[in-house]
Amino acid sequence: MAGKAADKGKYKNMTMSSKEYKAFAKSREPGRSVLKNCLRAFVVGGLICVIGQAIQNGYMAWLHLTSTQASGPTVATMIFISVVLTSLGVYDKMAQWAGAGTAVPVTGFANSMCSAALEHRSEGLVLGVGGNMFKLAGSVIVYGAVAAFFVGIAHIILGTGGQ
């Protein structure tokens, strides 16, 4: 900043004000279409949920479970599929295209754990895999548990008895 006056002779003065420049730069930015990203997220996220629904219906028909009982095995199956796809390197390719469509479903949670485990495998099974598995997924568990704790406290204070 101090050299600004001294540099004046050496460099051409900018003909645009910084405001104009910002507008100009923005007009030349590669379009990161929010709409297109949202459409992709909608379609892929929706399809993942439809697959989940199909698996859940399958468990309900096959093992005669209620929808609540079937949700555990359903989530486990979805996570298994996600881990297999992550191991094959397919899930990350899908994620590049679909953005939040693959990140928001529970399969994205499993993907973040599995890819961290695979990435740090070379550092050893304990320090690498064990220590890094929750690198990304940890924040979800921490904030979920803390939020659930405060919601529970609120219910105790309000005397609803958890109903």
Binding site: C38, G45, G46, L47, V142
Partner: peptide, 29 residues
């Protein structure tokens, strides 16, 4: 309904990525 609601929640996540400019970890949390 599974498609529409599930897709809709993912769109909310995508908007948090693109418009609010949150990192994936912040969005998920």
């Amino acid at each position: 309904w599974a498609f529409l609601v599930g897709g809709g929640i993912c769109v909310i996540g995508q908007l948090m990525f693109d418009v609010v400019k949150l990192s994936p970890a912040h969005t998920m949390s």
